[in-house]
Structures are given as structure tokens and as C-alpha cells.
């Protein structure tokens, strides 16, 4: 990171499962493993609780990056929550480019409660990646009138609209 980047924080949202990764982040803190400060962590009970739409919402709202971390596969506190998470998040990762969002702004990983050092590495690497990508492109705010016009146009096109052939 250059000195200039260091001054300007980007907005990175983390979704961490309570049992493994949140604990891993705690472990990293207890061990004083210095990390970039851009990340803000939302605690959820299980990575299986993370709706891909939470991530999409964060990105639509202008987050520059979203990082998800759960228990290692087979280590899930709830037996199989991270298997569901893995499938959903992998799907999301492939789907993001279709929505026009750079999929590199989203990453998921597995960190156990004892892996403080790994957590430091994950955060540092992901933050660096996001800084390389720079701030997320700005979604043009659309006024209510424009929304209404869009909707009306769509309705007028009916079945022949571009998305539905």
C-alpha cells in the first residue's frame, strides 16, 4: 500500500461466523497481529446464515469489497452450514459479473478460531486487492421519476423486452 492509499480507507464489509472466523479474528487481535483497518465485521451465527443478497446489498450500497469467512468445511459448528454457504457463495461469485459487479470485490474463505495468523493474512491480502481495484464504481442515483419511467417503458415493451426475448 502506498502512503496515499493508507490515508484513504475503503469500505470493506466482513461477514464472519461466530464460532470459527469471528473467533479467529479475536485470536488475531489478542495476538496483536496488525491488520489494515478498512474492514468492518458483521457477526452472524453461521456462514450458512449469510444470504447472498446481504453481499449484493452491501455492494449495491457502495461497499468496495465484501469478505465472508466461516469454519473450514467439515468443521462447522452446525454440522453442515458452511457446505450450504460454500455452494451459495460460489454461485454468487459466478453470478456477480452478470450484474456488472467485479467479482474480485467479493471473496470467501475459511478461518478457524485458532488461526489468528491466517486471519491477518486473509485481511491483509483482501484489503490490498481491494485497494488495487480502487473504490467501487459509483452507481448513478436514479430519481423516483426516472424509476417510474423505466418501469413504464418496460411495461410498454411487454413480452418483447430485451430481457425476455
Amino acid at each position: 500500500m502506498s502512503a496515499q492509499d493508507e490515508q484513504r480507507e475503503l469500505r470493506i464489509v466482513g461477514f464472519l461466523c461466530n464460532w470459527c472466523s469471528y473467533g479467529g479474528a479475536d485470536t488475531a487481535g489478542v495476538a496483536r497481529f496488525i491488520q489494515p483497518t478498512d474492514l468492518r465485521i458483521i457477526r452472524v451465527p453461521c456462514s450458512g446464515r449469510i444470504d447472498p443478497l446481504f453481499i449484493v446489498r452491501a455492494l449495491l450500497n457502495g461497499a468496495d469489497g465484501v469478505l465472508v469467512s466461516g469454519c473450514h468445511p467439515r468443521d462447522c459448528h452446525y454440522a453442515e452450514g458452511n457446505f450450504y454457504a460454500r455452494r451459495r457463495l460460489e454461485m454468487l461469485k459466478r453470478f456477480l459479473p452478470i450484474t456488472g459487479i467485479d467479482e474480485r470485490r467479493f471473496e470467501y474463505t475459511w478461518v478457524s478460531a485458532s488461526e489468528g495468523q491466517r486471519w491477518q493474512h486473509v485481511v491483509t491480502e483482501f484489503t490490498r486487492r481491494i485497494h488495487e481495484l480502487g473504490p467501487a464504481p459509483f452507481f448513478n442515483p436514479v430519481s423516483e421519476e426516472e424509476w417510474a419511467k423505466l418501469a413504464l417503458d418496460g411495461a410498454a415493451r411487454g413480452a418483447s423486452c430485451a430481457c425476455h426475448g
Binding site: N61, G62, F139, P141
Partner: peptide, 27 residues
């Protein structure tokens, strides 16, 4: 809905971190 971790609660946290830019549109 999982009590204490409802969609609305988690989305409220997301919105607190990344305020919605599109005014007038409520999710």
C-alpha cells in the same frame, strides 16, 4: 426468520456501514 439475527437486523448493519445511495427506494 432466525430471531436476533433476522434479515432486517443484518441488513440494518449492512446499511449502517454502507448507507443506501438510492434515495426514495426502500429495501
Amino acid at each position: 426468520q432466525l430471531e436476533h439475527f433476522t434479515d432486517n437486523q443484518i441488513l440494518a448493519e449492512v446499511n449502517a456501514l454502507c448507507p443506501p445511495k438510492m434515495n426514495n427506494v426502500s429495501f
